[in-house]
Design a protein around this nucleic acid. Sequence first.
DNA 1: CTGAAAGCGCTTACAG
DNA 2: CTGAAAGCGCTTACAG
Lengths: 345, 345
Amino acid sequence: MASLQDIADYVGVSKATVSIYLKDKNTSRVGVSTKKKIDEARKKFNYRPNNIARSLSTKKSMSIGIMVPFNGSLYQSTFINELLSGIQSVLFPRQYSMVFLPTTGEDSRSMVKNQLDKGQGHDGLILFGTRYCTTEDMESNVQELEKSGMPFVVVNMPQMKSVVNQVVFRDPPSANPVKYLIELGHERILLMAGREQDSESLASILVYKETCLERDIPFDDDLILWGDFEKDSAKSSLIQYLTRKKLDFTAVYCLSDTMALGVYEALKEHNISVPGDISVIGRNDSFFASYMAPPLTTVKRQVFNEGKKAAEILLNTIETGRTGQFVILDSSLSLRDSTRALLNM
Amino acid sequence: MASLQDIADYVGVSKATVSIYLKDKNTSRVGVSTKKKIDEARKKFNYRPNNIARSLSTKKSMSIGIMVPFNGSLYQSTFINELLSGIQSVLFPRQYSMVFLPTTGEDSRSMVKNQLDKGQGHDGLILFGTRYCTTEDMESNVQELEKSGMPFVVVNMPQMKSVVNQVVFRDPPSANPVKYLIELGHERILLMAGREQDSESLASILVYKETCLERDIPFDDDLILWGDFEKDSAKSSLIQYLTRKKLDFTAVYCLSDTMALGVYEALKEHNISVPGDISVIGRNDSFFASYMAPPLTTVKRQVFNEGKKAAEILLNTIETGRTGQFVILDSSLSLRDSTRALLNM
DNA sequence: CTGAAAGCGCTTACAG
DNA sequence: CTGAAAGCGCTTACAG
């Protein structure tokens, strides 16, 4: 591959001249005839500047590192994909590349450390919270980024202790699906949670309990199921419950639409109708929620928007140095056909 | 951010010593006590090597540029996401980053050129064919990459004229949905194609015509609809057809499952039953195809596998220099409940 | 209108 | 066991 030096030699001029002309075609620093010769040489050698070298020199890489501590296929999670789309929507128009750092390691902490090693040299970092992270993991990961001194922003995490760039989801009371179900007359509500320690499940269980308490609904630990945020896990988790126990609930709230997919399948296999026998609520309002049969009622989170805001915030701190930007995005309930009021209220 | 020089100064040793120790902890080149001091300094400064500088020096970036000439959300297309997952499955374990180059420009050719500018410095490139590419665009884009001299591989394109790293999809006769439908007794088959000029639609129309010819089924141009590979476009395209004309067909073959989603909706709104009145076939076997109501019969392409093979091939040419690797991946028919044999055969 | 030189932060022979 | 130096391919003052 040709270098700037090759072009300069060919034209009989210095690297500086070529470099300056290439970055600004209208520069008055270079004469017209020289410009022509450079253009010619550029064509002849099919020359393109080496961005690595440029980055080292300018200390600007025009790239953002994406850190998703998740041991498996990214791009396979509807939720992550929507977040990524939001990020892309601001990064690409401003000419930034999105760099997905490889995930190696067993737990989220080591993944983040490894990614941080690979991430050195980018202009900024976007750190995801995932199902593999306990709240403590997240705090620790954020600290790690703080120590690195790089500009960064954090998505899909609860509010962190330290003041960092962060955009968080919040469910206002009006988007509390447990409250909504109780108001429809449901009392025995299954909660299809993720994993026993992930931050999001813990928070949701808390809200669940509080809501029951407020309404004088007895809380039953057995009603918490673990579906690992996957369709198949949720399915088998529910099937296990159904074979072990009676149909002693009237609704199920899933912490992701993907798990609702599995819940639908499990119920179908047991000839239990939605919403006739059981009401189902999902979470995220993924694109397929409205295609399900019946269309799924779900907690709509501003997923795309979270990605968008995060990217905006990050570019802002890259430009201004200002950090500690904090944005809250409220959820709402998307009512569709998978829930119904109980008649015998 | 601390540099190698800072560490070296602190320890009272040369950059070389620190560099060598950091890359190989077991080196005999550095004394035990020096090693300890370096470790200490590394902790103190929270030092991590700058990968940009390392890349420039080693001429190896451990990153692969992904070029998707597509003006819109990546990560929102089930098809692209599956391809990406396949790529990730080989790149991440081998410690390569995936770099998504920003797409700017109107047409696919300018997008690719711009991406090529940004892509300089990566170890290799993966070029996608998209709905925005005519076959001529693709040939031109591939030529552009050839001229760049960088290792690359091409996915989701028909076989190119030039011998390049490429993995292509192929529908063997057994996976020809038109043939299958004809054998079920269908004669008037709607083809929900993409855009008027995209390479894939053109190829599919060709196969469609040939298949009709073989079976002595008259071909009717009106049966070709354009759905732009999107749910909503396909939906409105079909609705338009239904209001303009009679229900003069018995089956529709969609060039993507996503468009089948729209076709389902359009038919539902017209109270046309699937497969009772109309049989529907999709393409790709996207994850949601089996959740549709009724579950969608579809042409299963080895999408994940294409990504995987492509990445393997690319790493291979990066290591060996060998290029022109060509892999064919055959489709098959995933039979589900959206198709039925016509009784009055 | 243009060139020589320093510098970005690493790695890698080379020399001792 | 360790250091000095060159080099990767750019950009950017500085000087003329």
